[in-house]
Design a protein around this nucleic acid. Structure first.
Length: 742
DNA sequence: ATTGGAATGTTTTTT
DNA sequence: ACATTCCAAT
């Protein structure tokens, strides 16, 4: 059979694509084209096997991966592909819950609680149960509850399995927490997986419906699924028994999130008839990089044996950068990048700087800023988790779902309107006694107003409920972005921030504007799928399920900074792993199991590289407040020495202009505020040397002297095209370029 | 009810 | 070193 869908695939890949019926396990090493196989398989099902897109389910690990897969399938078979269900577990089953909420006693306007909301609710539950938060840390309780949920254990089962007083207490809190979640018409992240299981158990008809809908099931990154996800998929797959899972046990790095590597290791036991394909040819990296990754991961005992190979060249050696301390490491990494850009045909976007912990990004960022190199950072503090954003989202959530008590409490007195702690306490007691939601109590407070609250509080409450109700009506009449604009205006937050006029307030101000832009864009692009989600519900769901990596925009010409976890699935010509030290990477050497996961993480990081791989480590590093002496990671020792080129970092003083003995300090501390204020800071830098025009001679710290040939954009987005003396024309962001007028 | 300063915890990775 | 939370003062 010849089909353009199979073009360019190797033999194993073709077979994997064509084996559409029954159970298929695709063990796909890093860079072996597994996403390609998956998309072609889906296209093949539709185009060749004449399966309706309606009957296909594809679960990906991130929204970004889902988006890319959608795009690629559409390219192969056209717009019909839009009816395929592609998305993350959370997105797909969140949507199903939207339709089926009533059966479980929820409303379809349910709210999704993130871990901060979760923690709030756990604290409330503990207060209610009179359990000491000093003795039982709420965050510890949360992790126990979430673990139970991921193992598909309810409060009763958790209690019966508890073998110590802490677990028993946690199970009790779990029960109360569940009760309150339900009352708030809210699901937490884990519920998006386990409530569908519950739904399918309780309503066999519904299960049958979805079994019949999803006749062909695909799960990407199967090694990172957990127990609950496993159960959910088993239930669905029992219908037509067509299930294809793709994964790589060597890339299982989410054990700490209760992912169960056993799911992939035992697939053949679950399905004795399963056909297994091994994709072992790597199309991404050089031999040296691949050998490095293989040699290290080989030390793991618990794995399916496979060896990646490539027909590419040996390539350059892996470079180990030994640095005296963490600052020297950051500086050296930047020097390596500048040198490569100068001497070879590399551009900023070719580089990724990866680290084990987000905290490591700070020094690297400082170093990059100092050298005026453009970068995008994935992770860190997330946009939608910033306080000012969450405050506004809380309004939207309450307007969508007035039962959402966690959000309601967040905004009831923000901005301050005279509903204080005592008032709130009374209201909550009252709600509890009458089994009302907090909002219901607020609505009734006037009728019952027999002196139990002060008149001032009463009228404040009335104002508040009137406002919320006004917007509940307004949202039916105006467009999403129109009524949110009016809401934000009425709250007066922007005015407050402007008055404050601190750097931080300005950054918050900008963030709110950015949120409004995002709302505007969402409002115009969202196409409601008939009688399903309202625009508001859909927006809130998207926001709740967004991952850092989803927002990563690889079209910008900038270096990439992210954790190794976030880098899974991506590739870059040059990858620099930093902090490759004992105690940091591997971070925890307590148990063999954890160590093996760290080693797999190393494998993931190393195999992101196409051409050049750097491993940097520092002999001394600041953590918390102290300086610690460290040694190179055992992973470095596990690499055969003939693959390694060892470089010692130059001493930190007396170097060229790229060192920064005393970096200019903004007032007060650095670190976090840099990220938040960078726009403002850059703006002032931009104002200092703003008036560029075409024809002007300028100097760039990396590329040297050149002449401006073209200008475009304004403010932060201003770009210049410069013809440099090496004859290369480059387009740069003025914001980052740090040009000097000559 | 709001504000400011002190005490406390946090950093491993995140849907 | 930071941010959040807690507590006392106004």
């Amino acid at each position: 059979m010849t089909s353009p869908i199979l073009d360019g695939l190797n033999e194993v890949q073709k077979k994997a694509v064509q084996t559409t019926d029954g159970q298929v396990l695709i063990l796909a090493g890093a860079g072996s084209g597994k996403t390609n196989v998956l998309t072609r398989r889906i296209a093949f099902l539709i185009a060749e096997r004449r399966v309706s897109p309606f009957h296909i389910l594809a679960v990906t690990f991130t929204n970004k991966a889902a988006g890319e897969m959608k795009e690629r399938v559409e390219k192969l078979i056209g717009p019909d592909s839009r009816r395929i269900s592609i998305g993350t577990f959370h997105a797909i089953f969140g949507k199903i819950l939207r339709y089926e909420a009533e059966k479980l006693g929820y409303k379809s306007s349910y709210t999704i609680y993130d871990s901060e909301d979760q923690l709030n609710l756990i604290k409330v539950s503990m207060e209610f149960l009179n359990i000491s938060q000093e003795l039982f840390a709420p965050s510890m309780i949360r992790s126990k509850i979430t673990k139970a949920k991921n193992l598909f254990q309810g409060p009763e089962m958790m209690k019966s399995k508890a073998d110590n007083p802490i677990d028993e207490k946690a199970a009790t809190i779990y029960g109360e927490y569940e009760r309150r979640l339900q009352k708030a018409n809210a699901f937490d992240f884990d519920d998006l997986i386990i409530k569908p299981i519950q739904l399918f158990h309780e309503f066999p008809d519904t299960l049958t419906f979805y079994q019949d809908k999803f006749r062909f099931i695909h799960i990407d990154e199967y090694q990172d699924t957990n127990r609950a996800q496993y159960i959910l998929i088993q239930l669905l797959a029992q219908g037509h028994r067509n299930i294809c899972v793709v994964g790589d046990d060597d890339q299982s790095i989410y054990g700490w999130r209760h992912a169960d590597i056993g799911n992939i290791l035992n697939f053949e036991k679950d399905y004795p008839e399963a056909v297994v394909f091994k994709l072992e040819q790597n199309y991404r990296s050089t031999q040296n990089i691949l050998r490095t990754a293989n040699e290290v991961v080989k030390n793991n005992l618990n794995r399916k044996s496979k060896t990646l190979w490539t027909d590419k060249d040996a390539g350059t050696l892996v470079t180990v950068l030994e640095c005296p301390d963490d600052r020297a490491e950051a500086r050296h990494v930047v020097q390596v990048i500048q040198e490569k850009i100068r001497s070879q045909k590399y551009t900023f976007a070719d580089f990724a700087i990866l680290y084990r912990t987000n905290a490591q990004s700070r020094l690297i960022e400082e170093s990059l800023m100092h050298a005026s190199l453009p970068y995008v950072m994935v992770g860190g503090l997330r946009f939608y988790e910033r306080k000012e954003i969450k405050d506004i989202l809380a309004y939207l959530r309450v307007i969508a779902n007035v039962s959402d008590t966690v959000s309601l409490k967040r905004i009831i007195n923000y901005p301050a309107r005279g509903i204080g702690k005592t008032t709130l306490e009374r209201l909550e007691e009252f709600s509890e006694a009458r089994n009302l939601t907090l909002f219901e109590t607020l609505m009734q407070v006037r009728q019952l107003g027999s002196g139990w609250l002060q008149e001032r509080a009463l009228s404040a409450i009335q104002h508040f409920t009137e406002m919320i109700n006004k917007y509940r009506e307004l949202k039916e009449q105006l467009s999403f972005s129109e009524w949110t604009r009016i809401l934000i205006e009425e709250l007066g937050l922007l005015r407050m921030l402007k008055q404050e006029n601190t750097i931080e307030a300005m950054s918050r101000y900008e963030n709110i504007i950015e949120l409004m832009t995002a709302i505007g864009e969402f409002g115009t692009s969202y196409v409601p799928s008939a009688e399903a989600e309202t625009t508001l519900d859909a927006f809130l769901k998207d926001v709740a399920l967004i991952a850092d990596i989803d927002q990563f925009d690889d079209s910008k010409n900038a270096l990439t900074l992210m954790t190794i976890h976030s880098s899974k699935g991506l590739e870059f010509p040059v990858v620099i792993l930093t902090g490759v030290e004992e105690g940091l990477f591997p971070i925890d050497t307590d148990s063999q199991k954890d160590l093996e996961e760290e080693r797999r993480l190393f494998y993931v990081g190393a195999t992101r590289a196409k051409k050049d791989l750097y491993l940097a480590f520092a002999k001394r590093r600041m953590r918390y407040n102290n300086v610690y002496s460290t040694t190179q990671s055992r992973f470095i020792d596990e690499i055969p020495s003939e693959l390694v080129n060892w470089e010692r970092s130059a001493p930190s003083l007396g170097l060229g202009m790229n060192t920064y003995p005393h970096r200019p300090r903004t007032r007060g501390g650095l670190s976090r505020s840099i990220r938040e204020t960078s726009d403002t800071m850059v703006e002032s830098a931009y104002n200092r040397n703003s008036h560029y025009r075409a024809g002007q001679h300028v100097e760039h710290p990396t590329f040297g002297p050149g002449r401006i040939t073209e200008m475009e954009g304004v403010g932060d987005r201003q770009k210049v095209t410069i013809l440099f003396n090496d004859g290369v024309e480059r387009r740069l962001m003025v914001k980052y370029a740090n040009l000097m007028v000559r």
